[in-house]
Design a binder for these strands. Structure first.
Lengths: 339, 339
DNA sequence: CTGAAAGCGCTTACAG
DNA sequence: CTGAAAGCGCTTACAG
């Protein structure tokens, strides 16, 4: 037996106060200058006492804004994504925005579906950690809706983006190696495809490899078409078989770091005794390894906050200047024991 | 320079096809029986070719349903929550529902705000991993909106819930210990407060402690008012100082497991040489420890799917029977090396 | 099988 | 400072 206390409407409030719905609406939207102090107070106390809350669906339909932002992540279950989301969520909720979180599961098709669905749900803007498979489509969307990209860029577009400074991150890792007696570096990365940070890092590695300061170190980039435990184990096995002394492996993300640590265990290799390891991205477990993991960490939480701030600022300035910005945030090196 | 291609409306489609908007609307809602085969086809091909997509805000306002479910988690950044969310997301998206994910950050006040906000945004139902601080309020909500609880229960209510079977989980852990020569068990848990699974586990521990089969083992429950690394380290230090032989610590969640492992490292204690450890909840890093962690794991993904299924079924059956269900899913024991 | 018309609950020019 | 009225983009009884 459901006791449906009838939902209160704006006209109920209007009747109780003895004014029109227009005035109540003005109150709800904070337009206090356009009403007398006394009506203002009457409305305030009435709403307070009966606990009226406006229907946001109706507000959105009429005002064409929903105070909602769609956040579409390429892969939400990556720890990187989680931390970024935390930043986005915190900033948005503090500014009165709600977020739709969508997981593209690394599929361009899913990503497109979500974007369309969110347009139809009237979100005010998008924060996109794009799969890299929808550059053209996303450019199109950005002409009609505010978009900020996180972690990934789209070439030849004027879409704002917030990301870690990959060139600086690679530099940080390599300069650290210069202080050791490292003679060989293998960078393990998922196949870059059209994913901008992966491309940037590989490019930076290759630039450094050509530098005379690094001439005593041999470089290689290993691009994994499939990232799972089995493939990483096989790769590591080959790598170690051919291993010279003072070999450092750099892993392109937290998942790869995890797989390498697992693979080393399976192959009975010790880190750093048998090879050194630097991971991109901080992980929950970095510190609890027998030898804690040395890591080059992104400011994930900041990336989230900054992206949220950028989109909300854009929304507020509406059709004003709204300049494109590429915001780069620095990595930090956390030296522990594996390198 | 924004090129706003004017958003297509239902009346545009109606004009193009040469029927009324009512007919288009019927098509959109799949009421094909109430139109001729030929209009149906004309509408289908027109919509397809111009790429019309209905405005969901308007649909929601009019039809009073939004195909949206609010998921409010006590603490989203708990790995447990993440896995449950994955299950919810997958089931919902497959059924055409979108979800709002909210993080109460373990605050009852935030939880209440989110619930109200979501009501005003017209969600069709709630999946709640409640903080335990809003039992009365949630009961009230459940009279007016479909609610399913996950992981946590509300006493004296007839709200459906999906959770792991805590009594069975504790049993699993303790029966495993019976096979070792364990003589002392310390169960580390966040202070139970009004959080049902914590209470259930403590109760079960105490029931078992009283059993003759366990009479050779001494039991204690340690309820932590604050859960952070520092407090756990202190607790562990005390615990170990007083330690008899064959001491097993059981941790009440993944975060506690992490802190205990870190604390052991800091205190220079080895697991399982100095004490054994069983963690509630599987973690990403269980396998990469020097001695991989023995764990009692919840079927998190299943919990999510099951909860999503329950709420969607309820929504579909509308005002039908809609029976209250308490669904208990089993833990599984993963024996590794720490116990 | 199809359409005219009312209405979902708000907001906002417009007029006073 | 305030209200009457139109309208956001759909859906749905009702009538035919």
């Amino acid at each position: 037996m459901k006791i449906m206390k009838k939902k209160l409407l704006i006209k109920d409030v209007a009747n109780m106060v003895g004014v029109s719905t227009a005035t109540i609406s003005r109150f709800l939207n904070g337009k206090y200058q356009s009403m007398s102090e006394s009506t203002r107070q009457k409305i305030a106390s009435t709403i307070e006492s009966i606990g009226y809350q406006p229907n946001n669906i109706a507000r959105s339909l009429r005002s064409q804004e929903s105070k909602t932002i769609a956040v579409i992540m390429a892969d939400i279950f990556n720890p990187y994504s989680m931390d970024v989301l935390r930043g986005i969520e915190e900033y948005c909720s503090q500014e009165g925005y709600k977020i739709f979180i969508c997981d593209a599961k690394n599929s361009g098709a899913r990503e497109r579906n979500y974007i369309e669905e969110m347009v139809n749900r009237g979100v005010d803007g998008f924060i996109l950690n794009t799969t890299g498979e929808n550059d053209l489509f996303v450019k199109g969307i950005s002409l009609e809706h505010p978009v900020v990209l996180i972690g990934r860029k789209i070439k030849n577009s004027n879409i704002s983006s917030v990301a870690a400074d990959n060139a600086q991150g690679v530099k940080l890792a390599l300069e650290h190696l210069l202080k050791t007696n490292c003679q060989r570096v293998s960078y393990l990365t998922p196949a870059p495809g059209n994913v901008s940070p992966r491309i940037e890092r590989v490019d930076t590695f290759e630039r450094f490899a050509a530098l005379s300061a690094f001439s005593h170190i041999s470089f290689e980039c290993i691009k994994l078409a499939v990232v799972d435990r089995e493939h990483v184990t096989k790769t590591l096995e080959t790598l170690i078989a051919s291993s010279s002394q003072n070999h450092t492996i750099i892993t392109g993300n937290g998942l790869l770091s995890l797989y390498v640590v697992q693979a080393a265990k399976a192959l009975n290799k010790r880190i750093p005794e048998d090879f050194s390891l630097i991971g991109f991205d901080e992980t929950e477990w970095s510190e609890i390894l027998k030898n804690p993991l040395t890591v080059v960490a992104q400011p994930t939480y900041d990336i989230g906050c900054t992206a949220a701030k950028k989109i909300i600022t854009t929304l507020r300035k509406a059709n004003e200047s709204n300049e494109t910005q590429i915001i780069l945030l620095p990595f930090s090196l956390i030296v522990r024991e594996t390198a």
